[in-house]
Design a protein around this nucleic acid. Structure first.
Lengths: 185, 185
DNA sequence: ACCTGAACACCGTTCAAGT
DNA sequence: ACCTGAACACCGTTCAAGT
């Protein structure tokens, strides 16, 4: 006599993602996830391999959402598109700070970084229009590294010497765009 | 009758740092640290408040070492000093990948980021010579963000589209230095 | 003053037994 | 086919008892 399914992988990932973001990495326990979806902890193992697998699924979900958010901005004037993509990146990280930080921490969830890498595909196309195909890769790496670093440090509260952070963002973005237009080093 | 001290905070931090770096975050257990320094787990609590406190001490130790490494390069021609500091930063991160990644993950060890921030003091001085005092802060933030982002992504294996990573490093550093020299946005 | 065994709460995970 | 209680190993932490 089959017992009805009382939850789903999608529900488990959604509940886990909410726990992770609202209460932190340590609060992502199999018990808390089970309570959130209305089953007992052992039942979760019918859908996910274990806690680390669940964390991977959560981060892949986050990475896919990031990719969609970036793709939406990858249209129109290239320089404007780059600025809009950088902003979308920053806003996404602010909305998902815990998950975003973990995305680039391979020790936290190996395999999740894989999915995050796809987010850069659209940017590479836009940058190619700006820098030419030869310089597209290093140029995309420069702006990606800068944006990711700025956002990570902002989230970590590492910018503490005062000053205007919005000015620092505009300064960085403006100079990097100008540098990319200027051509090879 | 006093019992002899069989270990020290310094030894505990050193053993913990080795475990963290060589075997990963999960391998940093109170049991493993106790074994490494030759006591039983409860004895560790005479020196550190607990595991999270130990992690904080480890990351502060790493941050202080990074500060020293950067300060050593902060001499001579400003542009050259910036390039040397960026390289020192990159090499340090490669030598301490696990700890470095955690440094900018405030959820991992709140308070450790505080110490990491000090590393940027020397850079700010050098940048001021290059960009002038008015633009020193946003300029330092641009290069710090770029270097940190590049290094983090390199460690995470996020640069997967082939190409020459050393060229991407030189391209980014060269363009950022040129942008800083060029003045306000 | 520091060390330790014993104990506790908590967590991830497995599995036999239920429906 | 999925669910569950019970059990196990492991981990962080506390504490009374030892020296």
């Amino acid at each position: 006599m089959p017992a009805h399914a009382q939850t789903s992988t999608v529900a488990i990932v959604a509940a886990g993602r909410r726990l992770l973001e609202e209460r932190g990495t340590d609060a992502l326990t199999m018990h808390a996830v089970a309570v959130a979806v209305g089953v007992r902890p052992p039942s979760l193992y019918k859908r996910v391999r274990g806690r680390s697998d669940l964390l991977r699924l959560i981060l892949e979900d986050v990475a896919d959402e990031l990719t969609v958010a970036l793709d939406q901005e990858a249209v129109g004037d290239p320089a404007l598109a780059v600025a809009k993509m950088a902003l979308a990146y920053r806003l996404f990280a602010r909305a998902n700070p815990v998950a975003y930080t973990l995305l680039m921490t391979p020790q936290a969830a190996p395999g999740a970084t894989d999915r995050a890498v796809r987010s850069s595909a659209a940017l590479l196309h836009v940058i190619a229009e700006l820098a030419g195909p030869d310089q597209a890769l290093p140029a995309a790496r420069m702006i990606t590294a800068w944006a990711h670093g700025f956002i990570t440090m902002e989230l970590a509260g590492a910018f503490r010497l005062g000053g205007d952070l919005e000015q620092a963002w505009d300064y960085g973005l403006g100079h990097i765009l100008a540098a990319i237009r200027a051509g090879p080093a």
